[in-house]
Design a protein around this nucleic acid. Sequence first.
DNA 1: GGTGTCTTTAGAACTGTTCTAACGTCCTTG
DNA 2: CAAGGACGTTAGAACAGTTCTAAAGACACC
Lengths: 141, 141
Amino acid sequence: MRQKKTPAVANVTVLERLREAGLRPTRQRLALAKLLFARGHRHMSAEELFNEAKTHRVNVSLATVYNALHDFTEKGLLREISIDSNISYFDTNTGNHHHFYFERSGQLEDISEDHISISSLPPAPGGAEISRVDVIIRVKA
Amino acid sequence: MRQKKTPAVANVTVLERLREAGLRPTRQRLALAKLLFARGHRHMSAEELFNEAKTHRVNVSLATVYNALHDFTEKGLLREISIDSNISYFDTNTGNHHHFYFERSGQLEDISEDHISISSLPPAPGGAEISRVDVIIRVKA
DNA sequence: GGTGTCTTTAGAACTGTTCTAACGTCCTTG
DNA sequence: CAAGGACGTTAGAACAGTTCTAAAGACACC
């Protein structure tokens, strides 16, 4: 039975990412980061991550999940997306891109930036700095 | 002292709009609709409308404000916009357009559609129908 | 004017999120 | 290695915005 759990590599890189971001790699943050960044890009709500942690026997409080998500977001490891008035999603893809939002299921799907081009962006009033442009395509499905 | 309140014209058109939308023009809905549509386009939260009603001596419950906003939205008189994770704005401009969002003040400002052009919109997965495209430009101000 | 349907209401309930204050953990520095 | 301090975590309470509930009220149509 050679079923070793996924090797140290993942741990190491996750650990490095936390360190680079200036976040102490605590047991909880490491576990959550692994869940988030383990495979591919994901869109997760706090509640989802909390539940996933539970099913993986990772004991963290809900407050810690929120803290971690916000800390990660602040340090640029995640990007927060508000679609619905009462749920926030956190996107592990922090690059420039946009989203499909499936109204029925509440799921998100990435749209790579080069599929959408915004031309003649109007100047921000008062010369204010633009912090981000979000495009959300709502889909009836 | 000839200070008649603003003339019947506004009332009539608001009343007609409600009727056309298939909404019974109750005292409360009329009053709220007048506040919303009286002058120019507005972005209002439920709480704001509720307070504006109070200061105008319009007695409505908060539940009624929510009911009216949702009814109006369902009938196409308003458009709902979610920016922040916990506040919904209702936009009296239901035409195709986008928004600046001023992060500091929480205010919204319209961007007319022809200031933004989205090219090569990707096909909605599974041929699903697109119900709306929202562009929000977040501005540090 | 009576009748049935739709609307309003106050307050309770609910949901997602944040706060609080006590406790743990880790990293010094001597 | 011990003590100290900064930083993290925790459970549960608190909070904000919104929705629900059940009862009372308004409206439209015959």
